[in-house]
Design a binder for these strands. Sequence first.
DNA 1: CCTTTAGTGGAGTACGTGCTCTAGTATTGC
DNA 2: GCAATACTAGAGCACGTACTCCACTAAAGG
Lengths: 200, 200
Amino acid sequence: MARTVDPEKHRARRLLIIDAALTCFAESGYAGTSTAAICRRAGIGSGTFFHYFPTKQSLLLAILALGTDETRAWFAACPADGSPIAVVEAYLDHTSAQMADPRMPGFVRAVGAVVGEPEVDAALDEDTRVLQDGLEPWIVRAQEAGEVRTDLPAHDLTSWVLVVLDGFLGRLATDAAFTAEKQAGTLRDAVRRLLAVSEV
Amino acid sequence: MARTVDPEKHRARRLLIIDAALTCFAESGYAGTSTAAICRRAGIGSGTFFHYFPTKQSLLLAILALGTDETRAWFAACPADGSPIAVVEAYLDHTSAQMADPRMPGFVRAVGAVVGEPEVDAALDEDTRVLQDGLEPWIVRAQEAGEVRTDLPAHDLTSWVLVVLDGFLGRLATDAAFTAEKQAGTLRDAVRRLLAVSEV
DNA sequence: CCTTTAGTGGAGTACGTGCTCTAGTATTGC
DNA sequence: GCAATACTAGAGCACGTACTCCACTAAAGG
């Protein structure tokens, strides 16, 4: 009898589909992308698609989980020493670097608009929760170190860092002249100003 | 023979459909909303719907045009005297006030993800262009008056104000605890810090 | 009054969708 | 070699979609 032929090959093909889907979603949105379009881009039949993912939604959830895991891993691998505000800025740089792939901003925007499907909503909620929970402790430490203003609670400050970050991603998606490489510095500057102790 | 019965009634019914569509789009996204759902919400038959709008897309374009016109009108009615930075902040307040309608953030997010349809893309482009062109002259004046930093060109500064504003709207749509009323003050503060002359 | 027509509703239609089913192939253990 | 099974492709299906068509009403000239 024959069992799993090659788990590595399986994983590779799975990633191939995920990659094709990422491109399609970024180009046409989630609802605007048909499974047939993903199959065409990936060069597979629809039977193969549904062999790897039971539903179109499960594919989206798999991609989202990949991103959430990545965020979790980044904060887990984050060095505990050094200036806390440097960690915040390092994360901003990390995100900017990720957005060098021109599909990413479009994907983020496309996925943010998927609403009404409870499982997707839950996945998106968890994604922002992981990010917020990863960032907030560093803001707290920065406040304790006197590096960051204390007139707003750390939770609110963290939310506002994410506000700027989300706006940044959105602009990347819609404005061709606005690129991650050119604006990464200003992003750091904007967040530094947002968090600065000095009253303006 | 009988001609136009009552143009006012026509306009009112049109707005009724637009209002119903706004609710549906905000709840379920553009692609996720069927014309049948809009008809149900508006309490009309589908024949009536297509009597007022030739396609579903044209309805979306009509809503977008309403918003763009509103923005244009706001800047046209803007007083030329007074501190230029006050105009910028007034616009922020104006937007915050508009977002008091809980459907608006969801609608903005839903519409931002509609991509691939050239006419919609064009309408969205014009919308941001009107906003950018409305705001930028005031940033220029503020720079000339020494109220705003000059280490970045006015165009970039304007873009970054819109980055913060877009991020603000996005957060309103996804975070129930983040409301326009509570955060409007911080929005003003964030933009003030972004534009401030002082190096941080 | 009758005629004309903007306005209205809803059954009907053509089509694209996510997904299933089946037949076939490659690859493994024996 | 042979049997068993992971994998692949694509035709086909049930369904929901945007949109059409037609019968009907109400209101305004003449």
